[in-house]
């Protein structure tokens, strides 16, 4: 468990980081908390000659909440996210989800930016961001751009981000309504067997909007528009929820792994999605 040799860079601002990325191209990679990247390097599944540590770049730090508008700097740790009272107040689903990631030790190091940029289908933040309709902000040698979380993921570890781009921040508008992040895992510190983020808004007993996204049930996070639509306009009764569950499970394609075979995952996914929706509805 010893990585191959690498050069370590620690730029103080974004232009300096971009310059190093530019110079070394494919041989360089940014590192945030290192809790996804370093294990890959130790297993020698990733061989990276130039590591660019982002921790000294102050523009990537910090959380701001103004009204319902939330901005999270890429280098914000999951621990800081959990301890931010404003986030817990305006977007309690984020607080609830972050508490289900890994364990406290990992959360001290792991960042929100690393979690969404990584492209690992097991990461919990991507599905959550899709549920929230968040926007990712990228900067590269070609300038800045914004990508919707729902358009960002292409396949496992493949995203819309170019190799020479850095994710700077995530923005979203805090949702109204009930919420739930439901996750089944084998133990603390494990990625999801199945997880679902649900946000449901009710008005006078009728659902006015609903957003459902899932984690680790395909090679990307899955946002199911149909699942949300199945709830909108209903009283979120049993039949409507079952229709939403059917729509959501119709959109996933889980793979067999040590957590279990596909039929098991499909069944658990349905259960977890149902519970997420029911809990969101109960809080709406």
């Amino acid at each position: 468990m010893i990585p191959a040799a690498f050069e370590y860079h620690r730029p103080a601002d974004i232009p300096a980081a971009l310059a190093i990325l530019d110079e070394h191209g494919d041989d360089a990679r940014v590192i945030a908390g290192g809790h996804s990247l370093i294990p890959m390097m130790k297993l020698r599944m990733a061989d990276i000659e130039h590591l660019i540590d982002l921790q000294d770049i102050s523009e990537l730090q910090g959380i701001t909440v103004s009204g319902a508008e939330v901005t999270i700097g890429a280098m914000t740790t999951q621990h800081d996210l959990i301890n931010n009272a404003d986030v817990a107040r305006v977007a309690p689903i984020m607080h609830e989800a972050a508490l289900q990631i890994a364990d406290p030790q990992v959360r001290y190091m792991g960042t929100v930016g690393g979690n969404v940029a990584n492209g690992d289908p097991g990461n919990d933040m991507p599905g959550l961001m899709q549920c929230l309709g968040a926007t990712f902000h990228l900067v590269g040698s070609g300038g800045e751009r914004a990508v919707a979380a729902r358009d960002y993921y292409e396949a496992a570890y493949m995203t819309d981000r170019e190799d020479d781009e850095i994710l700077t921040k995530i923005t979203f508008t805090a949702p109204e309504g009930g919420y739930a992040y439901e996750k089944q895992k084998r133990k603390i510190g494990d990625y999801a067997t199945a997880a679902c983020a649900a946000i449901v808004q009710m008005d006078g007993g009728t659902c006015t909007s609903a957003s459902i996204a899932m984690t680790n049930l395909s090679d990307t996070p899955i946002f199911s528009e149909e699942a949300g639509e199945a709830l909108v306009g209903t009283a979120c009764d049993k039949a409507a929820i079952e229709a939403a569950v059917a729509a959501a499970t119709g959109a996933i394609d889980p793979a067999e792994d040590n957590r279990g075979p596909v039929d098991f995952k499909m069944h658990v996914a349905a259960t977890i999605i149902r519970r997420a929706i029911e809990r969101a509805v109960s809080r709406a």
């Binding site: 089944q184 084998r186 067997t193 957590r259 279990g260 075979p261 039929d263 098991f264 069944h267 658990v268």
Partner: peptide, 16 residues
């Protein structure tokens, strides 16, 4: 008796 094996018992006994 991990999650999927317990699930498999239930499934095999027709409890789903």
């Amino acid at each position: 008796h991990d999650h999927w094996r317990i699930w498999k018992i239930a499934n095999g006994l027709g409890l789903h």
